[in-house]
Simulated assay, not measured.
Amino acid sequence: MEVINHTAKKKDTNLLMVTHLLQLATVFTGFGGLIAPLIVWATKKDDIQGMDYHGKTIINFQISIILLALVSIPLIFALGLGILMLIVIGVVSVVLPIINALRATNGEDPLLWLTFEFLKY
């Protein structure tokens, strides 16, 4: 008699990649880069191998980017440091999801630049 394990998680690196790329929705919608990956993570974290870790990483990264952007606003009046900080945040928030999408496709762990740990891994 064959035993079927219904609790086994399947490996879907393409969905992990898409979840990382959904962060780029922030460029067009503002908070879409947080909401879209949050929905995918919440619905698929128990089904896809690695989705829980990647999803938590994405949520932590997006919350960190939002908080760093808010902190940089008052720093604009302090010798323009906030403007420089916003430029760095903007570049990192576009480049890092692309890098992490490629890493997810290859089965590697995501990079955690500018990421504070709000959700435990």
Rank of each mutant, 00 (worst) to 15 (best):
S72L: 09
I83G: 06
M85W: 12
I98F: 05
Q49Y: 13
I65G: 01
L70E: 06
V27I: 15
I59A: 05
E117T: 15
A42C: 09
I48A: 03
T115G: 02
V95A: 13
S64T: 07
T19N: 13
I63E: 02
D12M: 05
I83P: 04
G107D: 04
P74F: 03
N14K: 13
L84R: 04
L70N: 08
I87F: 06
M51C: 08
G82C: 08
T105M: 12
L86T: 04
I63F: 07
K11N: 14
A8E: 14
L34W: 04
L81A: 12
L21N: 03
N5V: 06
M85T: 12
G32T: 09
L102N: 07
Q49V: 10
G33S: 05
V71Q: 03
L68Q: 12
L112M: 12
L38C: 01
V27Q: 00
P37M: 06
K11P: 07
R103F: 02
V27L: 13
F116V: 10
T26S: 14
V94T: 10
L75M: 13
T29V: 11
I83R: 02
H6W: 14
M1H: 08
L22R: 04
L114D: 10
P97F: 11
E2N: 08
N106S: 13
L111Y: 07
I4K: 14
V27D: 00
M17E: 07
V27F: 14
G90N: 08
T43Q: 10
K45T: 02
V88I: 15
V71E: 05
G50F: 01
I66D: 02
N60R: 12
T43I: 13
P97H: 09
A101F: 00
L86C: 07
L81N: 10
S72A: 15
N106T: 01
I63D: 01
G32L: 12
I73Q: 05
G30Y: 06
M85Y: 07
D46K: 15
P97W: 12
Q23K: 13
L96A: 13
K45P: 06
L75W: 03
S72T: 11
L111K: 14
V71R: 07
A25E: 02
M51F: 08
V3S: 12
D47M: 06
